[in-house]
Design a protein around this nucleic acid. Structure first.
Lengths: 230, 230
DNA sequence: TCAAAAACAGGGTGATCATCCTGTTTACAA
DNA sequence: TTGTAAACAGGATGATCACCCTGTTTTTGA
């Protein structure tokens, strides 16, 4: 009713500026968020177009099919997330075990601060898409493989420095990745990040050797969910 | 062209027989398979009706919405699968650790024999549906909780019998469930069940104490996939 | 400068999907 | 036997979806 205000959100609506890289990035950004939050099949291209503010022609120009878009999200975004969250911190740590511990605790702290558990980006898509299409499966399996490889490589480096000589590098890497993936799965379902700390403690086999376990700070029942619609 | 054979698949097409329980079970059967193989959103009710051989009216009568059908699959089928595959064998075993070991090995052997990894029924649906609807999330979280509870309870019973007294039951249960879930996630994505054995070995911390590890049968590279469309 | 390709806009299209609705048949209880 | 509700059949419907197509604008290279 209070019409005709000259609020001009776009300063120059006259001319168009082609920015293919920026356009591609915009689409990839909203697709990454949507695929993680709602999943691949539950995210429509119409939703993505509206959220990114791009036209159907533009989206189709950069990603001819929805599958191509998802493949780009997997190869460019999910792989990068694993790299940043896991591989780089582990490689930068003094030892694998310290690196694994640091990642578990950093992720747990971040989730508790955020108050919401979105799950592991890789596992989220892996479960929905691994059996849906061989190309999806191959791409996702490659990320898992690199993740494990980085951990086992670092463990071998540790062993050449005289540490952890009794541990099988591949087995340790498999268990670390599996424990994290499974813990994130439970944390997402329960909306409670404390299971990450439980798994970390078990992973460090404090249960047997370490004496710091027992009555140590059991901070369970730390439910994070607030009743907001996702 | 060789028409008019009197092959009568249904001996009496004349009268209808109401079998509400059987009808419900038929729908639940195909829904369980479809939701696991293709996921919830990728399975249409039309597919399910065709696969089960039921009409739209019948399906709608027993399950008014697709959500109600999925909820029934979760509460009746997924919960039962966890109970049969995990809880019952663990409770029946001589100790938790033996039970966990037996389940890992039994599942690994079954997957290798089948030649295909469909993934963990609970985790498959948990990843796709936990954030999609609060009712889904609650139901799935309850199954995870019972799964963990059964393991920690059994561990406590073991400890009252003098075994495993240094282990924290909750932490062990969390790690066992997480390791299995994560291992199944990797196995599904790689279509290779060997990671289950790797994780089991790490879980039994044979890397440090047990002497049977080391050069034992490392049967990696056992890729199961045959190039068939799912 | 100018043609060609790339980048983008936006409406159209056939297919599919979950749900609904009307009508018919079967089961059960009075 | 009869009335009533459950059980089932099957087509209708409106919404949605991924993709396509035609046309316009911008950029690029010669």
């Amino acid at each position: 009713m209070s019409a005709e205000m000259t609020v001009r959100s776009k300063p120059r609506p006259r001319k168009r500026i082609n920015d293919p890289d920026g356009m591609r990035k915009k689409v990839l950004d909203v697709a990454e968020v949507a695929f993680q939050a709602r999943g691949y099949h539950a995210s429509s291209l119409g939703d993505l177009m509206a959220a990114a503010g791009v036209s159907g022609g533009a989206l189709h120009h950069h990603f001819p099919t929805k599958k191509a878009l998802a493949l780009a999200v997997i190869e460019e975004r999910v792989a990068a997330a694993v790299e940043q969250t896991w591989i780089a911190p582990v490689l930068a740590a003094a030892s694998v075990r310290e690196g694994v511990r640091a990642v578990f605790e950093a992720v747990a702290a971040e989730l508790e601060q955020q108050g919401f558990v979105r799950g592991c980006p890789l596992n989220n898509l892996a479960h929905e898409l691994s059996l849906a299409d061989p190309d999806f499966r191959i791409a996702l399996a490659g990320i898992f493989a690199r993740w494990r490889q980085a951990i086992s490589d670092k463990m071998r480096a540790d062993q050449q420095a005289g540490r952890d000589e009794g541990t099988d590098p591949e087995r340790f890497a498999a268990l670390a990745v599996a424990a994290y993936s499974g813990a994130m799965s439970m944390a997402k379902t329960a909306q409670d990040a404390s299971v990450l700390r439980d798994c970390l403690a078990g992973l460090e086999r404090s249960a047997l050797s370490s004496s710091q376990g027992g009555l140590a700070a059991r901070r369970r029942r730390r439910v994070l969910l607030r009743p907001r619609t996702v």
